[in-house]
Design a protein around this nucleic acid. Sequence first.
DNA 1: TTATTATCCTACCAAATTAGTAGACTAAAA
DNA 2: TTTTAGTCTACTAATTTGGTAGGATAATAA
Lengths: 134, 134
Amino acid sequence: MLSKKAQYALKAAGYLAAKGGANPVQIAEISEKKQIPLKFLENILLELKKAGILESKKGKGGGYYISHAPSDISLAKIIRTVDGPISMLPCVSLYFYEKCSDCDEEHCNINRVFAEARDATLQVLEHRTLQDIM
Amino acid sequence: MLSKKAQYALKAAGYLAAKGGANPVQIAEISEKKQIPLKFLENILLELKKAGILESKKGKGGGYYISHAPSDISLAKIIRTVDGPISMLPCVSLYFYEKCSDCDEEHCNINRVFAEARDATLQVLEHRTLQDIM
DNA sequence: TTATTATCCTACCAAATTAGTAGACTAAAA
DNA sequence: TTTTAGTCTACTAATTTGGTAGGATAATAA
């Protein structure tokens, strides 16, 4: 399951996408409209910014806005940024790979099946973008 | 990500499947061969039994064995038994559905995308069985 | 230049979950 | 009736999750 953090991230990013390009929206507005705890949302948006998904402007008239066209920001990227791996096993993760302790990956069938599952999931999440959830 | 518990469950069930039908295998043997902490494995196998995936025999010559043909036990069922939902959001879960607080499911696009992701994942995990990981 | 606005950043905290352990109990064989 | 092997309840330590607090910093406007 996605963490609350990831769910909030998707909602917030979707909201910003709907608001259009370089049009700064304040954290407070997103928090209120999307019912996300303000201080928690601060952390989340900052993370999304550091990942290059959002940009921000400080001071009066400032806020957050998306850095690319909505159709260029995949849901997979947002999820990875806040939750880490999408795969169900570390040893089949593309971005967060970790070797499993005692299995030979060449011959491990569990491995193989979960690589299939990963591909199936990513087929959706890499191609669905903010465009699809605005 | 799958919990350690789910990973252990898959390994143990795969081992039992490889051992064939009504052929009781002791917890200790599985624990040793698959490198799973004994007492933890006890709990896991008991859960799998209660879910109808395994059967057991007590006393000398006892142990655990799979209750159906390996090809009749899907990986999805094992995962759900020990980890709960496979979906990424409660509101698209088939077996552990929970309404989301403030989203209208008829019109929620996030919802719709994650139902797609769920279907893609399940397409693999419902059709892949112990047969595939023995 | 100084007040105001709004993001940035570090650190903390409580509750829940995860990963496992302990130990007594029960049923089946030998 | 002893041994064997699963059953069951309860506990615990470590980690993760879901937040909060409060000051620092940067941009704008009076």
